[in-house]
């Protein structure tokens, strides 16, 4: 059988270009090394998720429009953000199954000359890495084992739940990202309430609760003496990295836990420099961690 073509439409979303470009920079670097081709889509917009709470039809319309554009290119979508992945994947599967809903959404899309047909697939970066590129191929690109590193993992909700729409990992005991991390030689540490939500989606409505949630998680991570936390979502990342100083101030505690995007970790193991991987853009500096390597 011919090797699967590794070519995807990159779905960047809003949060990455707005606040978390280190995730994009490092992702492009490692995918290039792995021979994954990214196709830029000049017409993609917001995935639709931010509007779901206020108007479900509007979310469906935006998501379906993006999906319809991908269908025209005849390529799968790869999202880097858990939220974008979740909403595009869910909408894609729901519209494929539910004829009545599809007709309703297509009525709306008709206004802009688009149609959802249901011929594309949606993947998150970690699915592309684990399922399409494959562990073996990734292993071959590792130049420098990150052996002394011990890290905690936060996979995030929308890449796993609702499980009936995803099903590639067990939300009660997710292992996909851990396996990807272990390829770098780093050790993964278990901690209490590992699978709990970051809380970031409601920070604009109520900041107190998400800060408490994140504090709880950072405390559990500190307790197992992890050198870093690894994420695969810009939104989760913001909660633990960008807001970490605020959490420290609010509760008068010190964490100092660097939060790396998985591609940054993998890039280090591929022998890339911290400049190439935009590590200096992290709010919580990773300089101490780098001295361990």
């Amino acid at each position: 059988m011919a090797e699967q073509e590794l070519k995807y439409l990159l779905f960047l979303g809003c949060v990455i270009p707005y606040r978390v470009s280190s995730y994009e920079v490092s992702t492009r670097k490692i995918l290039d090394k792995l021979g994954v081709e990214l196709v830029e889509m000049p017409e993609f917009t917001c995935c639709g998720l931010p509007l779901d709470p206020v108007n479900h039809d509007m979310m469906l319309g935006l998501a379906a429009r993006n999906l319809a554009l991908a269908e025209q290119q005849n390529l799968p979508i790869m999202a880097l953000c858990n939220g974008c992945f979740g909403v595009l994947n869910h909408t894609n599967k729901e519209l494929k199954e539910d004829k009545k809903l599809r007709e309703k959404v297509n009525e709306h899309l008709k206004e802009i000359g688009a149609e959802f047909k249901g011929t594309t697939t949606v993947k998150h970066l970690i699915h592309v890495l684990a399922e399409d590129v494959g562990f073996e191929k990734i292993e071959k690109t590792i130049k420098k084992s990150l052996n002394p590193l011990k890290v905690a993992v936060h996979t995030g909700c929308h890449v796993m739940r609702p499980s009936k729409y995803i099903g590639s990992d067990d939300p009660e005991n997710p292992t996909l990202l851990k396996k990807l991390i272990r390829l770098t030689g780093a050790e993964t540490l278990d901690y209490i309430d590992e699978n709990e939500c970051c809380g970031n989606p409601i920070i604009g409505v109520n900041s107190e609760i998400p800060l408490q949630l994140a504090r709880h998680k950072l405390g559990n991570i500190k307790a197992v003496k992890a050198h870093a936390l690894i994420t695969v979502c810009p939104f989760c990342h913001m909660m633990y990295d960008l807001h970490q100083p605020r959490i420290e101030r609010t509760f008068n505690e010190k964490y100092g836990i660097p939060v790396l995007h998985y591609p940054q970790l993998l890039g280090l193991a591929m022998g890339m420099s911290h400049e190439e991987l935009a590590l200096k853009e992290l709010r919580v500096k990773a300089s101490e961690l780098l001295t361990l390597l």
Partner: peptide, 12 residues
């Protein structure tokens, strides 16, 4: 009602 993060734990 605005406090749900849509983590979908309840859905699962």
């Amino acid at each position: 009602i605005w406090l749900c993060t849509s983590c979908f734990t309840c859905v699962d």
